[in-house]
Design a protein around this nucleic acid. Structure first.
Length: 314
DNA sequence: CTCCAGGGATGAT
DNA sequence: ATCATCCATGGA
């Protein structure tokens, strides 16, 4: 049996959110998406400002059921409580940011389970989205628990304990390559209790980043992704090659010799208290715009005209 | 500071 | 069918 739950979701674009490179396991099904939220298998589709969701009912994980619990779980996961209008209003008003903001209307930074997010982004290093999806699916299928919904089988993301006792060879069979060692080592730190991801919620941004960067396979970029996508640190500003390109091309077109350090300092101050949202919008816009008819050379010519003036920053 | 391994999908020829 | 390109971390 399934339970149908409707959730009011104004100012939300489900498909864009799930396709913006922050989460990698949702699969299209019927008119919506199938995936897990922690232990809970979920089907979700969007009808304008309404989410129609189905969850397996009478599950042992939801004793006494409650659609109410599932409703809260789903609304929290998709961060429907983030004040999107305020967040967008806090962005700097330059042309690049404004274009990204208009393009990404309804895109939200979701709240992922901490271990799942950390593990997935350790696997993401030097990989493209399509490939990260495959790694995530392979790990789930091999090490996760089965959950059934609507006659389909999904898999939960395997707990740290499960990854910790897998062999490096088994992990490499999930196409992890050199990341297998890092993922396994981090899983062991987490499952042993030496690193308590939940307890880190209480740390300041700077301390949290330090703790994350101390884990094998985690550098500044991945630490910022985990802070943004799992710890609700909306200021965290991950800089990958796409964002670096955006910054150099549009914000520093005239200054050739910006070091990575200078770019970090600029992005931390310039984009403000919701810099992570700004980053996600710039990222998704840059990756998605003109996918289709426009050739590369045309794209280049197009964007060359839109250089943001230095504005006395940095 | 610079250089580079690493590996599989995806795009170009 | 082969070749080039994409990419974060960590160590030399």
């Amino acid at each position: 049996m399934k339970k149908l739950i409707e959730i009011s979701a104004p100012d939300f674009d489900l498909a864009m959110t799930l396709d913006s490179g922050q989460v990698f396991h949702w699969q299209r099904a019927d008119n919506g998406f199938l995936g897990t939220i922690g232990d809970l298998p979920v089907y979700v589709e969007q009808r304008s400002e309404l989410l129609r969701t189905k969850v397996a009912s009478a599950s042992s994980r939801y004793p006494g059921n409650d659609a109410k619990d599932a409703h809260a779980t789903i609304a929290h996961y998709f961060a429907l409580d983030h004040p999107l209008a305020e967040i967008c209003a806090s962005f700097p008003a330059d042309p690049i940011m404004t274009a990204a903001r208009d393009f990404c209307r309804g895109l939200r930074i979701i709240r992922q389970p901490k271990w799942e997010c950390l593990a997935t982004f350790i696997c993401s290093s030097m990989k493209q989205l399509a490939h990260i999806r495959q790694i995530s699916a392979a790990l789930r299928n091999r090490f996760g628990d089965q959950r059934e919904i609507g006659g389909r089988v999904l898999h939960t993301f395997p707990p740290a304990q499960q990854i910790a006792r897998a062999s490096e060879k088994q992990l490499r069979e999930c196409a992890l390559g050199y990341r297998a060692k890092n993922l396994r080592a981090t899983a062991q730190l987490v499952s042993s209790g030496e690193c308590n991801l939940e307890a880190w919620s209480g740390l300041s941004d700077a301390r949290l980043r330090e703790h994350l960067c101390a884990l094998p396979g985690v550098g500044a970029k991945i630490a910022n992704c985990v802070m943004l996508f799992a710890y609700d640190r909306l200021r965290a500003f991950p800089i990958d090659v796409w964002i670096e390109r955006v910054l150099r091309r549009h914000y520093f077109a005239r200054r050739k010799k910006m070091t990575a350090r200078q770019l970090h300092e600029f992005s931390e101050t310039y984009f403000g208290e919701h810099g992570g949202y700004a980053q996600q919008y710039l990222f998704h816009h840059a990756r998605t715009e003109g996918k289709g008819s426009m050739s590369k050379s045309k794209k280049k010519n197009c964007s060359a005209g839109q250089v943001v003036r230095a504005q006395g920053l940095g």
